[in-house]
Design a protein around this nucleic acid. Structure first.
Length: 273
DNA sequence: AACGCGCCCTGTCCGC
DNA sequence: TGCGGACAGGGCGCGT
């Protein structure tokens, strides 16, 4: 589900609710979520009593900064962070695997049907190094020169290239297809084969499509919701994702679907070269 | 080093 | 109506 825009939408909604608030207690019930380090009780006891100093995002990761330590949360495919105003409102179900109780009564719960998500703690100073993910595409550091260097260094096809979080952080299946369409390049092209103008077009397309996703509060394909239960409105604006068979918005050629790197990939065979 | 594949897990949808 | 199989927004670990 959640790619950079969805994670950012959740972060923006959640920050005013949790920043400068103290975690009274934490519960984690699913050991699979903490496989990257620590057991559920260890993490839960380390969280109790800490105050959230800031809520940041890096790629598709949430970083709850607690001072010396940082709570890292990744939603995987089906993870949700949900906010409950009061303990009495909290309605956990069989897929609710963790929750944080805040002073004053608010509860932040973690729900994840497929359990591909992650919850773990890292020392704040080593978070970036440990996550090992690439440049933030919406930051000033994502310049044409930087992106061109990354492209030149990879023989991978563009689709798996864009999904590789070590290269550029935060792009997932939806926004990869949408960016490649907007840039007019085929997902099967090798990254290193792009001409400079194509690198430039792809960089601009990545930034434009991620910003549009955030502006429209995310893509709700099946079940994306922000922490207060609000769906996003970007899915109807997708130009190729899940539109195979439909006419291209530019040239009316039917959109094609192929599988590339085990992922459904959608493109216009006429507009994308 | 870097790429590509199988796999982790649960739910839904489609065809028979 | 029931069942098997394909597929789903992500990333890790392995073999090449």
């Amino acid at each position: 589900m959640p790619e950079l825009p969805e994670v950012e939408v959740i972060r923006q909604a959640l920050a005013p609710l949790v920043v400068r608030r103290r975690i009274e207690a934490a519960e984690i019930h699913e050991p699979r979520l903490t496989r990257r380090g620590g057991t559920p009780p260890q993490i839960a006891s380390a969280l109790a009593g800490q105050t959230v100093a800031a809520l940041r995002r890096r790629g598709k990761y949430f970083l709850f900064e607690l001072g010396r330590e940082c709570l890292v949360v990744h939603l995987g495919m089906t993870g949700q962070l949900l906010w409950w105003n009061a303990r009495a409102e909290f309605r956990p179900d069989t897929h609710t695997h963790a929750h944080l109780s805040f002073d004053g009564g608010g509860i932040l719960s973690y729900r994840d049907i497929r359990k591909f998500g992650q919850i773990f703690l890292l020392p704040t100073t080593t978070v970036d190094r440990t996550l090992g993910i690439g440049v933030e595409p919406l930051d000033a550091g994502f310049t044409l020169e930087v992106f061109e260097r990354i492209c030149r260094a990879s023989a991978a096809r563009l689709k798996p290239f864009l999904l590789d979080q070590r290269k550029v952080a935060g792009i997932g299946n939806i926004y990869a297809d949408e960016a490649l369409f907007r840039a007019g390049v085929r997902p099967t092209r090798r990254a290193s084969s792009l001409r400079r103008v194509e690198v430039q077009a792809l960089r601009r397309a990545i930034r434009a499509v991620l910003r549009a996703g955030i502006r429209h509060r995310g893509s709700s394909i099946s079940d994306f919701r922000d922490p207060c239960g609000e769906p996003g409105h970007f899915a109807p604006l997708h130009r190729v994702y899940h539109r195979h068979g439909e006419p291209c918005v530019t040239c009316r050629t039917p959109i094609r679907r192929i599988v590339l790197g085990q992922r459904g990939t959608h493109f216009c065979p006429t507009c994308q070269r």
